[in-house]
Simulated assay, not measured.
Amino acid sequence: MIVLGYIGNHASDDIAARIGWAAVRAAQKGATWRRVTHVEAVLAGTGRHCAIGSSSLRDGGVRIKPDANLTPANWVAVNVPHWDTEAAIDWFTAHSGEPYDTRGALATVLWFLPHHRGSWFCNEAVAAAHGVIDPHRLTPAAFFALALSQPGARICTAEFFAVDEPGAPRLTLQKGLALA
C-alpha cells in the first residue's frame, strides 16, 4: 500500500484555505513531517494518474478519486508493505459519502473538542482503512510518522512518480472503478 503525504504550498487555494493549512503545519508536533497537511491512500496505479482514497473538506467527505492528477513536487510517497490495498478499497467503498470531520480534525490539537463519530478527516480515514486504533487522535504528521514506522515501510516517492510513462496500461479497481 502506498500512502501519500501532501507537502505542497497550497498556492492555488484561496486565502482562507492557505491560512488553515498554515495553522495545521504550525499546530502539528514533530519537525520531520509537520509539512504534511493531507494524506491519501493509493488504491490503484502509480505516478501522476492513480486512484486515491481519503476524506476531504473540499470534496465533501470520504471519497475515492478514480483518476487523480497529482503534481509530483507536492507529494511524498511511502510504501507500507503489510497494509492491504484491497481492504482499503473495501473500507473507502463502504464509507464513501460520509461527511468530513472538521471538529475531529481540530480535536487532534485542541484536546477538549470531541471526536464526531461517523465522519472522517483525511488521515483518520486512511488510518481506519488499515485498522489503526483510535485514528482520530492523529494529526497528518503523526499519521505519516506512524506509517513510516511500520515494518518494511520506506519512502518511495521517486519510484512512485518515475513510472508515469505515456501509454501505460489502464488499471481497474475492484468494484468497477477504472482509471482513465
Rank of each mutant, 00 (worst) to 15 (best):
T46Y: 08
H38T: 00
A23K: 04
R117W: 05
H136E: 09
A129K: 08
E165C: 15
T93G: 11
R170M: 15
P72I: 01
A17I: 13
P66D: 10
E165Q: 12
I7N: 08
W33R: 09
A125H: 15
A11D: 15
A127W: 07
I19D: 09
V62Y: 14
H136T: 07
A142V: 06
R25L: 07
D67E: 12
N74A: 11
K65R: 10
A178C: 07
A26P: 00
A44V: 06
G8Q: 09
V76I: 15
F112G: 03
A153Y: 04
T37E: 00
A127I: 03
V3E: 08
I52C: 04
F112W: 13
H130L: 02
G152A: 13
G97T: 01
P135Q: 06
Y100Q: 11
R63L: 13
V3W: 12
G61L: 01
F92Y: 00
W111D: 12
V62K: 09
A162Q: 15
R170A: 10
N123H: 09
A94F: 08
V126K: 13
H49L: 03
G20C: 02
F112D: 03
L138P: 05
A145G: 04
A178W: 08
I15H: 07
Y6F: 15
T46N: 08
T71I: 13
E165P: 14
L57T: 06
V39Q: 10
P135G: 04
H130E: 06
I133F: 07
N69K: 13
H136Y: 04
G60F: 06
V42Q: 02
I89L: 10
P81G: 14
G60R: 06
L70T: 00
R48E: 11
H130I: 12
D13Q: 14
P72D: 11
D134A: 05
P99C: 01
G5V: 01
A158G: 13
H95G: 02
T32N: 06
Q150V: 00
I15T: 15
T139D: 02
H95L: 05
W83D: 03
P66E: 12
V132G: 05
N9V: 14
P166M: 12
L106F: 14
D164I: 14
A178Q: 11
S119I: 04
A51K: 11
P72F: 08
P169L: 04
R63D: 00
R35Y: 01
P81Q: 09
E40M: 03
A145H: 13
Y100H: 03
A145I: 04
E124A: 10
Y100V: 02
G152R: 09
A129E: 09
S54G: 09
A162P: 08
F143K: 00
D13W: 10
T102F: 14
A27T: 11
H10Q: 05
L179S: 14
A16E: 14
L146P: 05
T172M: 04
Q150E: 04
P81E: 12
G8L: 11
P151M: 06
L70D: 01
D134M: 14
D134L: 10
G20F: 06
D59Q: 12
Q174P: 14
H10E: 15
T85Y: 01
D67I: 07
